[in-house]
């Protein structure tokens, strides 16, 4: 008897599993990531409030809000592109997410270090 082991131990690549769960799990994974990005954006706003410099504070809040909207747009676009069969390749979405994360790190450093 031959049995193909699942790819990642969660079973949906099992030939007997209902079709489409790989796509569903990937979509939910993008949603979880968008949710995490929202949490980080809120924490960035909270940290920006300790800034004494009003202009710096406003700039950090504005950039954080725009960056968050950008990350949400990437997640939304990728989820929408996943409906075809086979789903469209990820394209530049991973690179966009990674740059967004790096940008939030830089913004966080500015919020934490600047007086």
């Amino acid at each position: 008897m031959t049995h193909t082991p699942p790819l990642d131990g969660e079973g949906d690549e099992d030939p007997d599993a209902p079709p489409g769960t790989a796509r569903l799990r990937t979509r939910l994974s993008w949603r979880r990531t968008a949710l995490s990005a929202t949490g980080v954006m809120l924490l960035t706003l909270k940290t920006a409030l300790i800034q004494q410099n009003v202009a710096g504070r406003a700039l950090i809040i504005a950039v954080a809000a725009l960056g968050w909207l950008g990350l949400l747009a990437i997640c939304r676009k990728r989820i929408a592109a996943m409906t075809g069969t086979p789903p469209a390749p990820a394209g530049w979405s991973p690179a966009g997410m990674a740059l967004g994360i790096a940008g939030f790190a830089v913004l966080g450093i500015a919020a934490a270090v600047l007086p």
Binding site: L43, T47, F104, A105, G108
Partner: peptide, 10 residues
Amino acid sequence: LIGGGLAVAG
């Protein structure tokens, strides 16, 4: 980790 860093600072 970024959230952790921001929480430490804030």
